[in-house]
Design a protein around this nucleic acid. Structure first.
Length: 462
RNA sequence: CGGGCUGUGGUGUAACGGUAGCACGAGACGUUUGGGACGUUUUAGUCCGAGUUCAAAUCUCGGCAGCCCGACCA
């Protein structure tokens, strides 16, 4: 299909210009492009398919926790936002407001949701009456709009797709535990499926979500040594419960405010995945998230060969599909080299080369996207070999990322060491009480999170 | 939001204030096909709006958008 063919432009090497490399990879892989609206992107089929896989994986995990999906409106009465003081303060500068509709000025303006705590909690106040209604566990998949000043494709777009979970619990301990459980879901997903190692920790007071008591975060490291927040989970305490009057009758028939959490993961994770795994050839996708895991390239010299090779390739593909591995045969007329090039930059984890040589030999050539390694396998053990190779690619990507992650986290004992680490594109790990916040700001770094052992991670961030 | 740079076919580029040209891509036909094929041919462009000028892709102003730095960014 024509749409499989992506832009032909050369990809700028990472060493030359990391930002340009990132943009080139996205373009070459056909993931997204700029929309005619400032800071907004068009997610193309190749990019959206990744998001669909993210959704499918996470949604299943949410459901295991008893979370149910719902949908709330895009527009939120502006006054809702004002109900929680910290919340409105945090979001006011970046909300878009609808002031006119139906040809006239609105009495009551609406904001386009930057997040949905307010409108969801307005409903929670009605839905929750009794301790029997708790816990209430709701998630929604939606878009949000934040008027960001410096957008970057996937990493920070004006409109982005995400899921936001919102829960209400009877006790503080239960809410905090749930917030931690969801962080664990994110952490496992990001590590096991996206093959990205992360630090999990607590945001500092100044970095936490506006309206939360505590914000838990997972932080990844991109190939240029910057931090990227992959997901957050908030313990909201009773801040919204009090602002929206969400009370229930407990077993003793006495009214109590609920304790709440919210948690989210966005299309930004796609940007993170690109920046962690891809190389100068283009996109690299971990097999578990890759929409297309295997591409078969048939090779022929004449029409007779073409028919036979494509026929054989089709049969192989059938068998692979039956094993539940997504696969496609590139039957287009181009030359093999052109096809290799084209599929490599789209990040397909595994390529099968199939020509007359292999057919006469009942074999196929497997080529890995991550290492470029080639292997000839017999057709009758192909499925097994594919599954093994995909597993191996998945674990190799995680291992490779973890090696980079660990070797670029430097323990610092003082601000001079910390500054040196940050300056050379590393993460710095240091005792919290040794930090000089002012100096950190001067070098444009931020405290990414406080680890369980009390150390903090400092880095430059996207 | 401040500072810098930029905006020409789908992409990348060229054109002194004076005929918008080239390459890649895309389409057609043919020859090809084990790492980015080749020939013939067709196709398509000055971001938007004002201004200066006999004449604007080019100069000026405004807008919109992009990239980089900063501030900001749960």
């Amino acid at each position: 299909m024509k749409t499989d063919k992506t832009e032909n432009k050369k990809i700028t090497p990472r060493s030359e210009d990391f930002s340009q490399w990132y943009l080139d990879v996205i373009q070459a892989a056909g993931l997204a492009e700029h929309a005619p609206v400032k800071g907004c992107m068009i997610i193309k089929p190749n990019g959206y398919a990744i998001w669909e896989n993210i959704q499918a994986n996470l949604d299943a995990e949410f459901k295991k926790k008893g979370v149910r999906n719902a949908y709330f409106p895009l527009l939120i009465p502006e006054k809702f936002l004002r109900k929680e003081a910290q919340h409105v303060k945090g979001f006011a500068p970046e909300v878009a407001v609808v002031t006119h509709a139906g040809g006239k000025k609105l009495e009551e303006p609406y904001v386009i949701r930057p997040t949905s705590e307010t409108i969801i909690n307005d409903s929670f106040a009605k839905w929750i009456q009794s301790h029997r209604d708790l816990p209430l566990l709701i998630n929604q998949w939606c878009n949000v709009v934040r008027w960001e000043l410096r957008p970057r494709l996937f990493l920070r777009t004006t409109e982005f797709l995400w899921q936001e979970g919102h829960t209400a619990h009877a006790t503080e301990a239960e809410a905090d535990d749930f917030a931690n459980q969801m962080l664990e879901v994110y952490k496992n997903f990001v590590q096991d499926i996206l093959a990205i190692p992360v630090y999990a920790g607590l945001k500092t007071e100044s970095e936490k979500f506006a309206g939360a008591d505590k914000t838990y975060t997972i932080e990844a490291m991109t190939q240029d040594g910057k931090a990227l927040q992959m997901a957050t989970s908030h313990n909201l305490g009773q801040n919204f419960a009090k602002a929206f009057d969400i009370q229930y009758m407990d077993e003793n028939n006495s009214p109590q405010y609920v304790w709440q959490t919210s948690w989210g993961l966005s299309t930004r994770t796609i940007g993170g995945m690109i920046m962690v795994h891809s190389d100068d050839t283009g996109l690299i996708l971990p097999p578990r998230i890759a929409p297309l895991k295997v591409i078969i390239i048939p090779i022929w010299k004449n029409d007779a060969e073409k028919d036979s090779v494509i026929g054989q390739a089709g049969k192989l593909a059938e068998g692979i599909k039956e094993a539940n591995i997504s696969v496609k045969v590139d039957e287009t007329d181009g030359r093999p080299g052109e096809k290799y090039f084209n599929w490599e930059r789209q990040g397909v984890p595994l390529r099968i080369e199939l020509g007359p040589k292999e057919i006469s030999d009942s074999s196929a050539v497997l080529v890995r996207r991550d290492t470029g390694a080639k292997e000839t396998v017999k057709t009758d053990s192909l499925i097994k070999a594919l599954a093994a190779a995909l597993d191996s690619i998945q674990s190799n990507l995680l291992e490779r990322a973890r090696l980079y992650f660990d070797s670029n986290t430097i323990d610092a004992d003082n601000m001079a060491d910390l500054k040196k680490a940050i300056g050379s594109g590393n993460f710095a790990r240091m005792k919290r009480d040794l930090l000089d916040e002012k100096e950190i700001k001067e070098i444009s770094a931020t405290v990414r999170c406080v680890l369980a052992d009390g150390n903090v991670i400092v880095a430059k961030a996207y």
